[in-house]
Design a protein around this nucleic acid. Sequence first.
DNA 1: TTTTAGTACCTTGTTGTGCAAAGTATAAAA
DNA 2: TTTTATACTTTGCACAACAAGGTACTAAAA
Lengths: 99, 99
Amino acid sequence: MRKGVLEYCILSILSRREAYPSSIIDMLKQANMLVVEGTVYPLLIRQKNQGLLTYRWEESPQGPPRKYYMLTDKGRAQLAEMDVAWKEIIETINMLKNG
Amino acid sequence: MRKGVLEYCILSILSRREAYPSSIIDMLKQANMLVVEGTVYPLLIRQKNQGLLTYRWEESPQGPPRKYYMLTDKGRAQLAEMDVAWKEIIETINMLKNG
DNA sequence: TTTTAGTACCTTGTTGTGCAAAGTATAAAA
DNA sequence: TTTTATACTTTGCACAACAAGGTACTAAAA
């Protein structure tokens, strides 16, 4: 069931602060939202191509440079829509369960 | 985002009472969970093949006979697991949004 | 100076889900 | 007997998630 909400999770994470893919994966793992690189990298690229995200390179203290992603205005608008949609889904489930 | 929770929705509907596919689709539509036949029929067959559902034929007052689906014990157990998983997903989203 | 270890980003091929569209079948009304 | 309404089913496509493997940069160890 977690599958469908991944896009929402990533926008939510980036709404708090910019982050690079490896750290996003770590955050999702810590939140019990297990995912793998092969899922997250293409998803970030898709969201960037939709104009929801943008990024900048930054040198790392150790290792190769990091690609810091952040929300665009369009991404913030999309997140606001998804906040509404998410509440509706929760309502819907409650309705189906309780009548 | 609705996509991933369809299986859960159907088990939830059938936990209240048995139902035939056309009426399940109507219930989902009324709950703003828009779906189409080409999604629901294969899903019901999948859940039946997994042993989560069973069905019986019943004559309709008008039109062709209806295929009434109902939960098996295994289906009820699966639903209980999904109830837990669903709560966890809601918690996870909250955590990602608020830290 | 070459190799290894650690970190980070990316791609390819497979699988399964959701959907549009078309198809089959029953029953009753026109 | 054709149409209308209801109901179940199948086919082919598109795309998302994943496993697995690949590329590349940096620093420390050999």
